[in-house]
Amino acid sequence: MDLITLKNIKMGPLIPNGIITGDWNFVIAILVGIAFGFILEASGFSSSRNIVGTFYGYNFVVLRVFFTAVIVAMVGLLYFGYFGWINLSQIFILPAFWPSMLLGGVIMGFGFLMGGFCPGTSFTAISIGKIDGLVFTAGLYLGIFMFSESFPLFKDFYNSGNLGHVTLTDVTGISASWFAFAFVIIALTAFWITMLIEKKVRKKITEYKF
């Protein structure tokens, strides 16, 4: 006798629960990839000016797009979990290696600012024929190659400070929905404040093109 007949309930994630086979992995990856690229390009992320504008304070579109993506996914997943469409405990959570992630984030931020692209947007830049995107991507592959070759040097640091598959709820004890609520409030406030900042800063810029 089954203790709880959860097995018969069809719910996501689709592949781990056998609703679709693992062969769909790459099909879904391509579809998601196309959608991601489209959104990046449609949001104007192929332009370095848009991306570094966050740093200089005249264009916060990167912040708004990514915050939107985060809060929609966050709130959406919680609703899906509530309606029983997805089992949130089955979702893969990237393990947190905090020292290496911290340093990696700083390096990536500098790269972002100096190159004017992030890895994803450099490809969308190539797709619309930008030469700086092409150069950036060449540098990206060079960086990957150099990192891979010198990996034994960083290996210990790379694997240090492993917190495991933790979520913010595990670390802070704040429940997921309260966290999501707070995050949405912060994000929405940021949207409106950045719009005001943009207005002020752009008044002083005489020449402004994307």
């Binding site: 809060i71 709130v75 919680l78 929905s177 309260w178 949405v184 409030i185 929405l188």
Partner: peptide
Amino acid sequence: MLVLAVGLLFFH
């Protein structure tokens, strides 16, 4: 978005 976020608190 605000309404959806507030909704989260209730169903939780």
